[in-house]
């Protein structure tokens, strides 16, 4: 008999569950475990705070240069900090030996990838928003166009997480995954960081939306390409 993973919501009769529902079940279960644990979330949040603080000290205290450097600092902090969380997407499954149970579930395997990705997004987006507010405070960033800034955050984080989740799954059974993940990840997400930094800078400097939009398009292209490729490759790579 299959032992349900810790925190897995009980499904009546253990019957078949549709793909989309599975994605949500998996993401919400992981989110619940992560929020209950707290230590991971708090350490990443602390990392963002410390990094932004140190960078502000290093680049400040004049208002102009600080504001100009802020988008770059914000996205580098996000990229570095998020790797701390990315390995957690599969870490618990490996620790508790439940990864094989997940993979044994009948039907396709893509839903595991999408569930983990949704979990990462649900974790990273609020954290990214918080660090945007921190950066706004420390780097004199105007937040008048919060909606557009949030769109940039969402597109950038999605692009980043789509690759990070895939690699986290790929490396989940390796001992050196914490070191390997950033090495593999950072060279791939260069376009995401570039486009996000430019879009954020454009919004902060008050450029018209027409000039920022190409960067959103680029992010969207990256997101679509890597989401599709990762979802297609994930079952091929994870099946033992």
């Amino acid at each position: 008999m299959r032992v349900p993973a810790k925190g897995w919501p009980q499904v009546a009769g253990g019957g078949r569950v549709g793909g989309v529902k599975r994605v949500f079940l998996l993401a919400l279960r992981d989110l619940r475990l992560e929020v209950r644990d707290r230590s991971g979330l708090l350490s990443v949040l602390a990392f963002f705070a410390v990094m932004l603080f140190i960078m502000a000290l290093a680049l400040g205290p004049e208002e102009g240069p600080l504001r100009r450097a802020a988008p770059g600092v914000l996205w580098v902090a996000l990229a570095f900090g998020s790797t701390l969380l990315s390995t957690r997407a599969f870490a618990l499954e490996v620790e508790e030996n439940t990864l094989d149970d997940l993979l044994l579930a009948p039907g396709g395997k893509e839903w595991i990838y999408f569930g983990k990705l949704l979990f990462q997004m649900l974790l990273l987006l609020p954290l990214a928003l918080l660090s945007l507010f921190m950066a706004a405070g420390l780097f004199y960033l105007p937040l008048e166009r919060l909606l557009s800034l949030f769109l940039t955050l969402a597109l950038g984080v999605l692009g980043y997480a789509s690759v990070a989740t895939f690699y986290a799954g790929l490396l989940s059974r390796l001992r050196g995954r914490e070191v390997l993940l950033p090495l593999l990840l950072f060279s791939l997400v260069v376009p995401v960081v570039l486009a996000s930094v430019r879009a954020t800078l454009g919004l902060v400097e008050g450029l018209p939306l027409g000039e920022v939009a190409p960067w959103w398009q680029l992010l969207l292209v990256f997101d679509v390409v890597y989401l599709t490729a990762s979802a297609l490759l994930f079952p091929l790579v994870m099946e033992g």
Partner: peptide, 13 residues
């Protein structure tokens, strides 16, 4: 695979 499909996107960016 993922590394190579990055070529056009990073060139453009």
């Amino acid at each position: 695979i993922l590394g190579f499909i990055n070529v056009p996107i990073s060139y453009l960016s």
